[in-house]
Design a protein around this nucleic acid. Sequence first.
DNA 1: ACGGTAATGAAAATCATTTTCATTTGTGAT
DNA 2: ATCACAAATGAAAATGATTTTCATTACCGT
Lengths: 121, 121
Amino acid sequence: MSRSNPRVLSTLERAGGFASAQEVYRLMQREGESIGLTTVYRSLQSLVNDKIVDVLRRDDGEAIYRLCGESHHHHLVCKSCGETVEIEGGAIEKWAQLIAEEHGFRDVGHTAEIFGICKKC
Amino acid sequence: MSRSNPRVLSTLERAGGFASAQEVYRLMQREGESIGLTTVYRSLQSLVNDKIVDVLRRDDGEAIYRLCGESHHHHLVCKSCGETVEIEGGAIEKWAQLIAEEHGFRDVGHTAEIFGICKKC
DNA sequence: ACGGTAATGAAAATCATTTTCATTTGTGAT
DNA sequence: ATCACAAATGAAAATGATTTTCATTACCGT
Ligand SMILES: [Mn+2]
Ligand SMILES: [Mn+2]
Ligand SMILES: [Zn+2]
Ligand SMILES: [Zn+2]
């Protein structure tokens, strides 16, 4: 196992939200940093193991990473124009946790999205 | 766009839980059915569009498919072994509707998944 | 039968991710 | 500083799922 290259973490921080390994790599290239794609993958995996970074999957299957501890939230998205509202989980957080515990699951996470047609559309 | 090959749906039914496209394909091969992998992919994709099957992603990123029941439901999935429990929306249905209305959205839908590690893993 | 459209599948292309492996770098002891 | 050894690095090749191409075949209405 290898330890995470600090420049990878720093780049992921700078990226803001979620970013894939490929995106982190391209970002570093663009900023003139010399690094191999392999090292980016290895570093991100290591950060996930250490629970410094969350990983989940895009619809297309690509893995995307983000720093843990950024506030957890969900999205309300307009199917027509794409306008997005960030919303707090509220009741859903408890619901997910409760359901999971009822079935004996641990290490619980969840995803939730609401979509519809916004006022303007 | 193509319509789903009925033998693909039939195989997915017979498979029981979730199965990937590759698995459905291998299953059909083993049972002597003559079909192309491309057709399996196309059929599953079509079934997803028609909301006859659910699709989600394994930890390794491979897409897995399963017949969905006729009633709207959500999933509690083990990240390790893939075991899946169907759960009722309950609180989340109201939550999604309420949040959407607060922001003036109509024609509201939602997605929600809970994941974690099951008892056996 | 004829003409057009949809379905099929083999092969090649794509693309993220992993593996290999040779090279470089860091560390710690002598 | 020199040596030895372990860890980190990255280029290139391998992997594996999914998509695309494209030529062939099955199907349907007239
Ligand atoms: Mn939440
Ligand atoms: Mn629901
Ligand atoms: Zn809108
Ligand atoms: Zn499990």
